[in-house]
Design a protein around this nucleic acid. Sequence first.
RNA 1: CGGGGUGUAGCGUAGCCCGGUUAUCGCGCCACGUUUGGGACGUGGAGGCCGCAGGUUCGAAUCCUGCCACCCCGACCA
Length: 501
Amino acid sequence: MQYLCQTFIMSKNLTKREIDYSKWYNELVVKADLAENSAVRGCMVIKPYGYAIWEKMQAELDRMFKETGHENAYFPLFVPKSLFEAEEKNAEGFAKECAVVTHYRLQNDPDNEGKLRVDPAAKLEEELVVRPTSEAIIWNTYKGWIQSYRDLPLLINQWANVVRWEMRTRLFLRTAEFLWQEGHTAHATKKEALKEAMLMQKVYAEFAENFMAMPVIKGAKSESERFAGADETFTIEALMQDGKALQAGTSHFLGQNFAKAFDVKYTSKEGKQEYVWATSWGVSTRLIGGLIMTHSDDFGLVLPPKLAPIQVVIVPIYKGEEQLEAISEKVDVFVKELRSKGVSVKFDDRDTYRPGAKFAEYELKGVPVRIAIGKRDLENNTVEIARRDTLEKQTVSQDDVVEFVTGLLNDIQENLFNKAIAYRTEHTTVVDTFDEFKDVIENKGGFVSAHWDGTIETEDKIKELTKATIRCIPLDNKIEEGKCVFSGAKSMQRVLFAKSY
RNA sequence: CGGGGUGUAGCGUAGCCCGGUUAUCGCGCCACGUUUGGGACGUGGAGGCCGCAGGUUCGAAUCCUGCCACCCCGACCA
């Protein structure tokens, strides 16, 4: 097996990561045709190619949720204000970023021909909050569904959109409206609810690592980073190429907070009235942002095969109809065989672009494998196969194409994950002094593993001085006595700090 | 929401300070022809209420006011 030397190609019009990472990201999202800004402030249009990635994520996650016993349902977009405010901490946490519906009708504006205005007579008795998350409406509903221990556990997920009126938005990473799934479960015991919250964190981690090829740290949030209304927040934290951390998914143990706020009780086997225990967990279209920032390069998007809408693209190289026909005949066989193996293949026989333009386009869009086939290949019984992750090219016998490609897709998936793990390992630094801490956060980036005294004061002070926050207290942390990197007070374990998205 | 910046054709831009012919250039787009192993070439063509709304002026892309959107830096956050 001989790799051909890859000619250096300047990717046109895409800012280099090292010049301006943020600009690179924004340009890539638009140029790769994933999404664009809309006429609505902070809200994006997810374009077909970007949505196809979301659909692949959804399909896999949905399968995993169902395998772990969950069912899908759907709850309303609007939450009456009185319900929204029932769980105080939750309400307070989200209050500042809620869109609120106050009227239900428009009318012609008498002072402004051809324009509409809100009909002042159509004011709602009670304002409706556009859900920033659905605990309130769901727990109000669960009240009617749960009477006995026999009704438990209740394991529900919904795929939905939510709205959080963010000050600063970025495509996929933080938009005012985003798509997500939110699981909401009710359990008879604390132990069972905790187990559920951790199980879903595990599901998220497996999805991130096995499908997105994005390594994550499983951990618990510090008190100040916890979800509003949760007793414990479990998180998966990923590290992006610019050294910043991304909270990629969270799973909350809600204790009995919502059960108490909405008076959800069940009768136990012993005939006693008990409040139920709750969890909620979610991942969003933010995952697409994480996917982009984990693997992509200066040539464009790099997609892991398991989530790529197109896994293999075939580009014919030909002169005249006759050659195209001969090539198409061969290609049809490959397409059929690859599809029978579950590989998604696109044969790009457009006559309106030359091969070079197509190569560049599919590199920008991150298609994992490209096959080129021309007259020369027909004569030699070969094809040229290029992999997106390393940009290497190789000539392969036509007899081996299917086997080679399926193997290559696995290789790419694995290689992307290994590369990301290597990056994270290299950018995880153990520090014992605050000078070192500041230096690493400032200059090297990535995760910093340091002792922390467990107080909010220290956490806040560190954030203020370095902009780094506690990303999580890793679950597999070893107990190791030490001194807090900031206060010098006694600490029993290290936690992970980083600047984050 | 505070500070800074930017909005001119689908995209990227010149012109704006100092108001005055038909708003510049490149890419892209359309037609025809020649091309096709890494972003083709020629010829011809289309496309603009200069972000939106007011104002000043004989005259506004240019000056003034308000609004909207986007980008960067803070605060907030999945």
